[in-house]
Amino acid sequence: MSALSLCNLTKTYANSITALQAIDLEVEEGDFFALLGPNGAGKTTAIGIVTSLVNKTSGSVSVFGHDLDTDLAAAKACLGVVPQEVNLNQWDNVHNCVLNQAGFYGLARKHAGERTEIVLRELQLWDRRDETARNLSGGMKRRLMIARALVHEPRLLILDEPTAGVDIEIRRSMWAFLRQINEQGTTIILTTHYLEEAENLCRHVGIIDAGRIVEHDRMSAVLRKLHQEVFVLSLTDIVPSSLSLDGFDYQVVNEHEIEVEVHGDRNLNQLFEALSQAGVQVSSMRNKTNRLEELFMRLVDRRDKELTERIAEPEMRL
């Protein structure tokens, strides 16, 4: 069953900017789905429409089979949302922020209290329950927004850049928590600028650019589309001036480091064989770029190139 289905979804704002151009997207129940794209690509608009904070221009949206136009309340009941901007009532305490949200979803007071305690404990905020929201650190505010979104046990959780501005330790603990609730059955849609995050967490990915879905596949399939990776090798000795690696291009970074390109038709064994033949000892190695980031940049670059060509064409005719 589809947790989320977007069909021909279009949004044109009052200032005539088209943020979404007839996009189609399916997210299966139980999936951990990454929605990626550069700033202004249309991610937040898409999420805004799904959560009914933005009115669509045309197309349809359904959440677990509930159409937003005809069965809005049922669709909303399935959804939990963590927005990009902190939108807590800054004067409320942590406990009330979550308890009130449970009440807005119609949870009886006693049940709401129990759920509030559960989610605050899970997100390590129970000890701070009497603290005013504005006194929390950035990371705690993010966790509080997740707790608030989970209090009514949504079947679909949408997180719009939940780890923005959060330090790596908290980010990793949030990843562990999100993995856990996904394993327990909650479908998760995540937008993020940290592509490493998407690569680590998500099984499927949709890449949106200029209001269009430019890639939609399994994460592993998307990553396979990359035919080249760049490795940075630290050498034990100084890089020889006449170094030649059979069939591999490389660049000298500094006197102890080189960057080597490994294309899809070669493998690391062949690289190390070439290094051994050249008499070079490698002390450490790391991947230069995040693979997903690489693919993402290629897709966006391709779009920019096409745009440039389209703009240039009339001039050429002249």
Binding site: L53, A73, E85, N87, F104
Partner: peptide, 17 residues
């Protein structure tokens, strides 16, 4: 204030009439 700070969204995303 709820609209300006954004926490009006808490109510708008919920299935309240």
């Amino acid at each position: 204030a709820a609209k300006f700070q954004g926490h009006l969204q808490e109510m708008l995303v919920a299935p309240m009439k």
